[in-house]
Amino acid sequence: MTMEPEGIPRHRTNAPNHVYYFDIGTGVWQGKATFRVTSWRRLMRSRIGLTNKLLVTSMHIIERLTGAPRQDSDIVAKPNEGEFGQADNVVRISKFGVTLYLLEEQYVLHSDGTGVTIHGNERLGPVPGLLTRTFTYTAEIREEGMAATYSMPLLGAHWTGNYQVAADRQSIFAELVCDWGTATEDTRRISAPA
């Protein structure tokens, strides 16, 4: 483990991004994800492309018919990677055991203590290699590591995701919004790192 000059382990700082990813986020999380279109008119007028419009419509209809899908997330802290540490995350959203969405992310923490650059590889749908892409976006960790705001490119649109950690540090609620839709994530830690 890398030690800072004061003898404090590198990942045991009070930097908000260290607290959020290393102290709180690390572990296995499980919960539910929701998705719905809030304005069909704005969706149809948007420039997200036909494929994304079909995906959005399908996701909205499937959730209305079958209920909210399950979300699983596994976050691994890597405090000694890079300049200020990083964390890896695998997110899987599924329904009836079928993967609807798979996202592999690498969070690169900034030395300012609040910034994060995220590199993502995503797959939409259950078929590997069919609807995939890679992308990069940013986040800012706030409130001493108890909240985060992500600026995400999803489904051809710009989304803002606000994440709030519960006081017990064992659950996180997020609301993601764009011009025509909203999504939520409500997860709880089911196991801490070994």
Rank of each mutant, 00 (worst) to 15 (best):
N89C: 01
L103F: 02
G145I: 04
L100F: 08
L109Y: 09
H110G: 08
A87K: 04
I172T: 09
C178I: 10
A157M: 12
E144F: 12
R169I: 04
E143C: 08
L109N: 09
T149C: 08
V177K: 14
R123H: 04
R169E: 13
G97H: 02
I141N: 07
D168G: 14
N162A: 13
V127A: 03
S111Q: 05
Y150D: 13
K78G: 01
G85I: 08
N80C: 07
K95Q: 06
Q164W: 10
V165I: 15
I93G: 00
G115M: 06
E144H: 14
H158V: 13
T114Y: 12
T132I: 10
I118P: 09
F173S: 14
A139M: 08
E105T: 04
S171I: 06
M152G: 06
E122H: 02
L154R: 03
E81D: 05
S94V: 00
A139V: 03
T99N: 03
H119R: 07
E122S: 03
A166N: 10
K78D: 03
Y137M: 09
R92C: 05
V90Y: 00
R142P: 05
D112Q: 11
L124Q: 07
R133W: 12
P126R: 03
L124A: 10
P126M: 10
Q106H: 08
T114D: 14
F135L: 06
A139I: 07
Q86S: 07
T149Y: 06
Y137D: 10
Q164C: 08
E175C: 09
A147P: 04
Y137V: 03
A139Y: 08
Q86I: 00
E140V: 11
M146A: 12
N121W: 11
R92Y: 02
I172P: 01
N162F: 13
G115P: 08
Y150N: 11
E105K: 02
P126S: 15
